[in-house]
């Protein structure tokens, strides 16, 4: 049995470092090391680590579920209009110049990014993180991701249009990307907007 109070179980520390959510990882690890140094047992340390990892995973899962609902809802909202608005026929028949494609893609993707905002607003409200800044962030991140996804269409050869069998896949692929882009946007913005901690230098001098 480990009796060295300065060396807690290595595997437990490894689990904390890799599986505990980043936001609380440092504070929880420090607290557990502090209490372990006070004389707590290896078993106590392991129990604490397992609870921290499980509780952290549960909160992450809850967050992911909310994001999935928001993203799926938005993708469903756009399912019908997207297929009707996006000029697939014109693109696949080679009628569109690169300039026209760029304008279409820009307009559609910015509109799409605007349409997803109400769902993100709901998500942020649920998480107690609603703010204009968060909405602006999610707008820019999602619009950027949508436009990036469309970049391959610039290289479609207007003289050799894609075949109808290939065109069939365009809309499902676009929808899948919208879904993925929404997930990515939400993750980026949620991580970005976590309450920032200020390091308290005055606290150290007080202690």
């Amino acid at each position: 049995m480990n009796t060295d109070r300065s060396h807690p179980p290595r595997l437990a520390i490894w689990l904390l470092r890799h599986l505990c959510p980043g936001r609380n990882r440092e504070a929880i690890t420090g607290d557990l090391l502090e209490r372990f140094a006070e004389g707590r047992s290896d078993g106590w340390f392991w129990r604490q680590v397992l609870v921290a990892v499980l509780v952290g995973a549960a909160s992450q899962f809850k967050l992911l579920t909310e994001i999935c609902f928001a993203a799926a809802g938005t993708a469903l909202i756009w399912c019908v209009p997207w297929g009707q608005i996006f000029p697939i026929d014109a693109m696949s028949s080679g009628l569109m110049s690169w300039g026209e494609r760029f304008l279409w893609i820009g307009a559609i993707e910015i509109t799409t990014a605007l349409v997803v905002l109400p769902l993100f607003a709901t998500l942020f409200r649920l998480r107690g993180m609603f703010s204009g800044a968060n909405l602006l962030r999610v707008f820019f991140v999602s619009a950027m991701l949508f436009i990036v996804a469309d970049l391959p269409s610039f290289w479609w050869d207007v003289r050799r249009p894609i075949s109808p069998s290939q065109a069939v896949w365009v809309v499902p692929i676009m929808l899948a990307w919208i879904f993925a882009a929404l997930l990515i946007s939400a993750r980026v913005v949620l991580r970005w907007s976590m309450p920032r901690f200020s390091r308290s230098h005055s606290r150290q001098s007080r202690m």
């Binding site: 936001r23 609380n24 440092e26 504070a27 690890t29 420090g30 607290d31 090391l33 502090e34 140094a37 909160s59 998480r127 107690g128 993180m129 309450p195 901690f197 200020s198 390091r199 308290s200 230098h201 606290r203 150290q204």
Partner: peptide
């Protein structure tokens, strides 16, 4: 974390200390 989301508490990081393996406290 839940209390902080509801704005019932606020938190800030202190300085890292050697006793905690260089980890900061979250006040």
């Amino acid at each position: 974390d839940r209390l902080e989301q509801k704005e019932f508490v606020s938190s800030m990081l202190g300085d890292p200390t050697p006793a905690r393996g260089g980890r900061a406290k979250r006040y």
